[in-house]
Design a protein around this nucleic acid. Structure first.
Length: 352
DNA sequence: AATGCGGGGTC
DNA sequence: GACCCAGCATT
């Protein structure tokens, strides 16, 4: 960290102070109007940070608005049924976030007073170093520096740090102390948000807007004109996994599978049934091939017409007949809801 | 330290 | 198609 600061304009304390002021002034004038910034509260901050985890602002906006109406505060969330919570999260992904938010709200609701200490927040379900720093700085003005993907991008460019990082998480961990050193003692929440806002709206991954950057004079890469080459990450190897799924319908219902065999990542969330050799399935004609990526795995999911041979074993395979009229009520993973609609469309167009 | 976990924007 | 986004939990 120290050798990163040497021979850099931000090594100088008065320059560092000028940098903070420039960034905050820019933020005061240019910050986006976001629903968790107008009439802010601890609750809104927590919800927004959970939703924004690995998820873009534009994706979060409609979910956040609906969520705040349905669950306006910690107690209402604490008392809600997990079913309803998952439904509010449908399509956002990383569903454990919703379950953790449920648990967290139950813990918060029983607290006499809410601790401001970052370690308390880190101990809560679903909260790690980033959200703990974000919440305690924004809501309690604690001096805790966030270091997310935006901050990593800005920092490596400021210092021309061409080190090849194993992955984003590693870079965040490694650069967090540097983020902390640059941080002011006051307005820590605004400063954290300003740093990320700069990354999100000016210091883009590709084609960064260096000419209009408010802190260009503190940025090595911005002045050299090679910001786009930073940060440097190792390549990840992708794997492919092929899966068979079945389209099993009756006149008024579709057979769906709740959760996923072997783990609970999709607990409470429905998808088309997985075809297994030992299952009660009869595989029919091919319908279509769908692709989606989860982490580094590219899933190629082939969907076939199917039927079931042993109707008494539905529970064993977590299978449920879902009436067509109820299909909007349950929580289906984003891609599967889309695929189901597409398949219905194609079936109907075949009949005409 | 490495892996699993969603879905979508953007080039 | 590749990369990555206001990361965290588990192993």
């Amino acid at each position: 960290m120290n050798n990163l600061l040497t021979k850099h304009i931000l090594e100088d304390l008065s320059n560092r102070e000028r940098f903070r002021q420039s960034l905050l002034e820019w933020y005061d004038e240019n910050q986006r109007e976001l629903p968790w910034r107008t009439d802010p509260s601890l609750y809104k901050t927590v919800i927004s940070e959970f939703m924004l985890q690995q998820t873009r602002v534009s994706t979060v906006l409609p979910y956040f608005q609906k969520w705040i109406i349905k669950f306006p505060d910690f107690p209402s969330l604490a008392q809600a049924k997990e079913e309803d919570i998952l439904k509010g999260w449908e399509g956002l992904g990383y569903y454990s976030r919703a379950r953790n938010l449920h648990k967290l709200s139950q813990i918060i609701s029983t607290q006499e007073s809410i601790p401001h200490d970052v370690n308390f927040w880190k101990s809560l379900p679903g909260i790690g170093p980033y959200i703990a720093a974000a919440v305690t700085s924004i809501s309690f003005n604690q001096k805790e520096a966030v270091c997310d993907g935006n901050v990593v991008r800005v920092l490596t460019r400021f210092f021309g740090n061409g080190e090849k990082f194993k992955d984003g998480a590693y870079a965040q961990k490694k650069l967090q102390p540097l983020a902390h050193v640059l941080m002011p003692d006051d307005r820590t929440g605004d400063y954290n948000q300003a740093f990320m806002e700069l990354g999100a709206t000016v210091c883009h991954r590709q084609s960064p807007l260096c000419t209009t950057c408010p802190v260009l004079k503190f940025c090595k890469c911005g002045q050299r004109g090679d910001a786009e080459n930073f940060p440097v990450m190792e390549k990840k190897k992708k794997t492919v996994q092929e899966i068979d799924r079945l389209w099993i319908k009756s006149s008024n219902a579709l057979l769906l599978q709740k959760g996923k065999m072997g783990n609970n990542r999709l607990a409470g969330i429905y998808e088309l049934p997985l075809n297994t050799k030992l299952g009660p399935y009869i595989k029919g004609k091919f319908i279509s091939l769908k692709k989606r990526t989860i982490g580094q795995v590219l899933y190629q999911e082939s969907i076939y017409w199917g039927s079931i041979s042993k109707t008494l074993e539905l529970d064993e395979y977590s299978l449920e007949w879902v009436q067509w009229k109820d299909i909007e009520e349950i929580t289906i993973s984003g891609p599967h809801r889309k695929w189901i609609k597409e398949i219905i469309q194609s079936i109907e167009s075949d009949h005409t």
